[in-house]
Design a binder for these strands. Structure first.
Lengths: 181, 181
DNA sequence: CCACAAATGTCTATTAATCAACAGATTGGC
DNA sequence: GCCAATCTGTTGATTAATAGACATTTGTGG
């Protein structure tokens, strides 16, 4: 892709995140973003409909970064190393993810994360428990919701516990559940 | 001026200075600069004839920064605060100025600096010593050359002495000379 | 010494970003 | 409420940067 597009988009989201931190979503104007990014105001409109679209794009890309940084192309959940990688990565970039969650009124973050986690959990559950369709699906839904719930809580309430503690407790619950059979 | 020009030029000189530090002037290629700056190679040619022009531009702009940071619009030399400001600024950005001097085969740095220092010294000397034309000019030339020589030595040999020591010694010499009359 | 890779300098067509101007919508203070 | 200032969303003309291609030059290793 054209370098200019990549650079401009990066500048916009950097400016947006900076402003999100400084004054909160509601007070952000397109003008602000253009000024902060040092680009023409019209250029912002070439890339995004409005600031809601920018917020959405941010969530998208940061969820993407989280996933690709923690399990590039492989199964994400139900492996202890993967859990650990996720909590560690979140810990290192906590300010960003906290900011996103706090300003995410539509629960987009969880929904986007769920899309990937769900499909990969399905596969993992398919391998581990030999159950008929309905019961496997219940396992899956329970695991996914539990996992996402803990992630959400951990980000919002850090430092309620360390990444290691979160990993250990979460993983032990998952293994107990998948061993019920 | 168009933002794009400013940004691109900044990216080029940043890349150039980084490469100057990493591999030295001779080994730098236009290709390198384009890669490092993450811009198209052709774009470099839109702004500069060759890498010598970039080097020249760097010296120009860093001499400019030095001057405007130390005496914005006023007389530069023959005031203690000005001396102090110059040495302090140089000290804070020593890596850059050292790099420039070490790679300045044409003595451009001194020449460019001289242009400003000379004209302002002339004025200062005109006020301080009541001499006829020729003798005032000798005062001026002596002061300018001495000043530039100390600056050059100080940058190349830091930390031979602190900014404060350099300021004090240089200023005491200047005051003794201008008091000869 | 030759071959092959990399860098150069230049070009064209295309695209993204710019500025400036606009009328209409919001907002905050008096 | 109203005025002024700001922000919005869009436009059109212009300019800078892009990718890609090209023939040429440089320079390094076999």
């Amino acid at each position: 892709m054209d370098r200019r597009i990549i650079k401009t988009r990066k500048e916009i989201i950097n400016a947006f995140m900076k402003l999100l931190k400084k004054k909160g979503f509601e007070k952000i104007t397109i003008q602000d973003i253009a000024d902060e990014a040092d680009i023409n105001r019209g250029t912002v409109y070439l890339h995004f409909e409005d600031k809601y679209a920018i917020m959405d794009y941010c969530i998208d890309s940061y969820v993407g970064k989280l996933l690709e940084n923690c399990a590039p192309g492989e199964e994400i959940v139900l492996k202890k190393e993967a859990f650990n990688a996720i909590f560690n990565y979140l810990g290192e970039n906590l300010d960003i993810y906290k900011l996103l969650l706090e300003n995410d009124k539509n629960n987009s973050f969880n929904q986007k994360l769920k899309a990937t986690v769900e499909s990969q959990t399905e596969m993992a559950v398919g391998h581990m428990v030999k159950s008929d369709g309905a019961s496997a699906e219940i396992y899956t839904q329970f695991l996914v919701a539990g996992f996402l719930g803990v992630i959400d809580w951990w980000i919002r309430n850090y430092p309620a516990c360390t990444a290691e503690e979160a990993t250990d407790i979460l993983f032990s619950m998952v293994t107990h559940i998948t061993a019920i059979e």
